[in-house]
């Protein structure tokens, strides 16, 4: 069995007075795809964003409990959030390339990390794009705007951009929810390829997608972690009745 990459211990999160996450204890294995499923508002996205402290940006959020990545508690006072986020790539629901050229989009991460040599940047851009399986489609127009790409290409570009800063962990927040089936398949194929090198956590509303891409699945319901297990088990023989009701479409 792979070792644990991310471990949370009794994580509670409050939006003001409202508790959004209740005592979440979970272990996310290294170099595996872990999917979070659950109805809207169940806290899965919130939990995902608390793994790279993106929730800090929202005013009025209080967090207690531990999130331990590689034996380090990221909610410790001495943690530099910027350094932390460099190690954790994130891909968002809406493809969000910057209004810059494709090259500048990929080079953005390395640049803010202080890399400025052109040859180094060229290399990073190329390897990232190849890794994200979009190199062949964009290699002839690296200087053109990233906004001109199709939705699926933009999303893969965003993945390439995340890869360019060489993270250990990639968090994906519904990465294919706005894409057509073919683009979705490409993203899923990409996730399959990436899991050999990265720990991937993916939030999805599409249960079939969770079933297709993930090794482990966690089911959230109203801020609580109901069940986490191997994906095969969750989708054939879940332990918890609530999970079964959800995945078979009996409530939503």
């Amino acid at each position: 069995m792979k070792k644990t990459k991310i471990k949370t211990d009794k994580l509670n999160l409050f939006y003001g007075a409202k508790q959004a996450l209740i005592d979440i204890s979970m272990e996310i294995p290294e170099k595996r795809v872990t999917a979070f499923i659950g109805p809207s508002g169940c806290g899965k996205s919130t939990f995902l964003r608390s793994l790279n402290r993106m929730n800090d940006l929202i005013p009025g959020v209080k967090i207690n409990g531990d999130v331990i990545i590689d034996d380090i508690n990221i909610y410790d006072k001495n943690i530099d959030v910027v350094q932390l986020r460099k190690r954790i790539g994130m891909v968002f629901q809406k493809s969000n390339p910057f209004p810059k050229s494709i090259y500048d989009n990929i080079a953005y991460g390395p640049r803010v990390n202080g890399i400025s040599g052109k040859s180094t940047l060229d290399e990073i851009v190329e390897t990232s794009l190849i890794r994200a399986a979009i190199w062949d489609e964009v290699k002839d127009r690296l200087k053109s705007s990233a906004m001109g790409l199709s939705g699926g290409q933009q999303q893969r570009l965003c993945i390439a951009r995340a890869l360019a800063v060489n993270p250990d962990i990639i968090l994906m927040d519904e990465p294919a929810s706005a894409l057509d089936p073919i683009s979705t398949s490409k993203i899923e194929e990409l996730i399959h390829e990436l899991k050999t090198d990265y720990t991937i956590v993916i939030v999805t509303h599409n249960m079939q997608q969770a079933a297709r891409v993930s090794d482990f699945t966690a089911f959230f319901y109203i801020g609580e972690l109901i069940e986490m297990d191997k994906t095969t088990t969750i989708f054939t023989n879940p332990y918890n009745k609530k999970t079964e009701e959800y995945i078979t479409g009996r409530f939503g």
Binding site: M207, Q208, A211, F235, T236, N237, E244, I247, T248
Partner: peptide, 9 residues
């Protein structure tokens, strides 16, 4: 309907 779990069984 792509049945899963109980329905699939």
């Amino acid at each position: 309907h792509q049945p899963v779990a109980r329905d699939l069984r």
